[in-house]
Amino acid sequence: MNSSRSDTESESTSLSGSDTESVMLCDPNRLTLHIEAHPHESSAMWDIYQPIFNWIDPDAQLLRITERTHPVENAKGGMAGNASMHDSQRPEVPSIAVLAFLQEEGLFGCDRIQSAKQYFEKTPWKFHYSDKVSKSGINPYPYNSQDYYVTSTDLPLWAMRQVHQGKEHFRFVLFTSYESWEDMVDFYKLMSGASPDVLRSHFCLFTMHTNPHYDVQFALKRLPKDVKPKILDSSSLQFRVGDIGHLVPLFPNVCRPLSDTRWETTDHDGNRIVLETTGLVSQSAIASSSRLSQPLMGFYV
């Protein structure tokens, strides 16, 4: 058996051997996806997306859908706010994707996976593109490719994959511009409070939560130079942290309060990120944050 793995093959590896003794890994809501729906559409959107989470755990609370009560703001931090003429001509990929990795279960495993795949072939889903995992001409697994689907180009991509070893898992993927890769890796080390389980030239993976049945993962995937991420105004990732007072001065963009326990900032590409915390941010930390404009160079948690 060949002991070496290609970069793309490593992206499908289950990381059940990560440090389960960490207190952070026990928090099932350490990472959640938040979507703002148009008025009166939140219920229908929930009916479309929740079945995907039900494939692995019907009780998982990884998705929040709320009704938008304010206009979408176009102002963005990071690279998204300074797009050049050349940048505006590059094709776009929605910046957020959600993947469900499903196991084969005995003789009926393929039927289960086939049923999940067929779910994406029904209205209102639309095929977006396929990211082939196997570079060889022969694909030994019928679902060893990532076919991404969307209900709208302004909402996240969704996909399912077959996992052949280890536990099942949900994976939240953030597609990252080629130019900001190193800064984005450093920024999300801050957000996750940990070093990545996998770090390669175009792929970075964190285990955010683990239990006996499945893992919740967060990944960064570097886009080619000629493709840019499309920032999704209606969608954001929320990270739960203990106290962001010491983190705020290290953010590349301003951090503003949403409530007593939730704060919002943007990463280097301009993605909106929400932090949920039980701690309070000092006014001096907020002032320091507003003066910062430099990227997070060489910061490691």
Rank of each mutant, 00 (worst) to 15 (best):
I56C: 01
G109Q: 01
L280C: 01
T123Q: 14
M191T: 01
L296E: 09
M1C: 06
I231K: 11
Q89K: 14
R222N: 06
N253T: 03
L107Y: 06
R5A: 09
K225V: 13
S10C: 15
R5D: 14
S88C: 13
V227T: 09
K189I: 12
L232Q: 10
A75K: 08
S177A: 05
N139K: 03
E168P: 08
D183K: 07
E92F: 14
S145D: 01
A44W: 02
H164T: 13
D183V: 07
N211G: 04
L292M: 08
M297G: 06
F251V: 09
I113V: 06
R262F: 03
L220K: 12
E104P: 03
L157D: 09
Y143M: 11
F175E: 07
F120Y: 04
D186H: 11
T151W: 15
H86T: 08
F172I: 05
D59S: 01
K228C: 10
N29E: 10
S14G: 14
Y148N: 00
G17L: 03
H38Q: 13
R171A: 02
R222S: 07
A60E: 02
E182G: 03
V198C: 15
R5W: 11
V248H: 03
S236H: 06
K228P: 05
G77A: 08
S282F: 10
D186T: 11
S259W: 11
Q283N: 08
N139Y: 07
A97Y: 12
S42P: 06
V150P: 01
E264P: 06
R200H: 11
G137R: 15
K230R: 11
E67R: 13
D19S: 04
P249S: 07
V150N: 14
V274P: 06
H40G: 01
W181C: 05
D267R: 00
K167A: 13
R68L: 01
M1K: 08
S14T: 09
C204K: 05
V133N: 05
Q89F: 05
F203V: 02
S201A: 09
G242F: 10
T151N: 11
L155I: 13
E104K: 08
I52F: 10
F175S: 06
T20A: 14
P224S: 03
L62Y: 08
N139S: 02
E104I: 08
E67S: 13
S152E: 08
S192I: 08
G270A: 13
S192D: 07
E168Q: 05
R64I: 07
S14A: 05
A287Q: 01
Y149R: 08
H40D: 00
K189A: 09
D59I: 07
L33D: 02
